[in-house]
Design a protein around this nucleic acid. Structure first.
Lengths: 183, 183
DNA sequence: TTGCTAAACGGAGAATGACTCCGTATACTG
DNA sequence: CAGTATACGGAGTCATTCTCCGTTTAGCAA
């Protein structure tokens, strides 16, 4: 990539990170272009769709998600506690920016989406956590990771749209967890 | 109201019902105006916000919801079965038009919304169903009707956005129900 | 019937946001 | 340093929301 193109690319991603934090993931793309001091054309050339831009913005997620899942797999705290903390991390991650839960939970069922591979990281991390507890026989076996991601994503969507606090969200997650546990 | 105004009002509601069914609850309002053969000004005078129009379109819901809740309260089938059928009805009702689950579940937490009172009908119907099972001691007591509506609404949102079929939706509802049951 | 007036109409157009097209500018290469 | 592929950028189109205000008309009273 040409040097000026690389510079613009980086500036746009940095600006998008900022604007998404301020206004959510549905923020006007033209505003991002303006604040990054590039024309709309430049933004759209680098990122044909909003999701391409989101994909670039969330690059850093993977390590953090993997770490949280790793902790959940190894932790020897009670299953309910471990799952609550893992799901809370999951929700926090996709809810970092307003509008996030809806975007990610939709993309998870759409292999064509530019952020599908990121969603797969989420789903697979969740699968490792669930597998651990399936082996231990403490959670039901008749429901797969994708379905669990959808339910948790649903809770995150409501919390995001309604502006619910973490306590209320945790309470809802508690119901879902009890529905997953066999004990 | 003047006769011509009443006629336009009725035409707009009928057209909106049609267009919402075809294109979902986020359909362009100007299209509704055009197809109802009125100017945008007329539509917006009768219905200042999209939600005012939605409110008029869903007038007929109440009776059906009340009936389903009534059945759930009186049914002597197993709790799990009754709840599944009640929640499925709940989801079907708010999902009749694309975009519905999001609108209703948001409005439920916003007393200023023009459709808040309709949402209250939903929430109260759900409360009566839950109360029956609380009395019987088969569901947990530490979670109120609003929170349950939010969880079910979350499931409905995901199903709506992702285009999930009833079977998958029912499976997710099953998890939530198991999380509510104490048995 | 006619004339008056409050009520209602409707469409032009402003505001916002997504997205494109293409003439211009410039980074690299030889 | 000249040539060219690469990239830029902003004017402009399209879609959608929503308003303003000049025009029309329903309903009523004389």
């Amino acid at each position: 990539m040409r040097a000026d193109a690389q510079k613009n690319y980086d500036t746009i991603v940095a600006t998008a990170t900022l604007v998404f934090t301020e206004k959510g993931m549905d923020a006007p793309l033209d505003e991002i272009a303006t604040r990054a001091d590039v024309g709309p054309g430049t933004l759209y050339r680098h990122f044909p769709t909003r999701e391409d831009l989101i994909d670039a913005v969330i690059k850093s997620w993977i390590a953090q998600i993997e770490a949280a899942a790793h902790d959940a797999v190894l932790s020897d705290s009670p299953a309910r506690e471990v799952l609550l903390s893992w799901f809370a991390e999951y929700v926090a991650r996709i809810s970092r920016n307003k509008g996030g839960p809806s975007k990610f939970t939709s993309a998870m069922s759409n292999p064509q989406s530019p952020i599908f591979s990121k969603c797969e990281v989420l789903r697979e991390a969740n699968e490792r956590v669930l597998d651990r507890f399936r082996v231990e026989g403490v959670i039901r076996a008749d429901i797969d990771s994708l379905e669990v991601c959808r339910i948790i994503g649903g809770v995150a969507m409501v919390a995001d749209q309604t502006g619910l606090d973490e306590l209320t969200t945790a309470s809802m997650l508690g119901v879902v967890i009890d529905g997953l546990l066999t004990t």
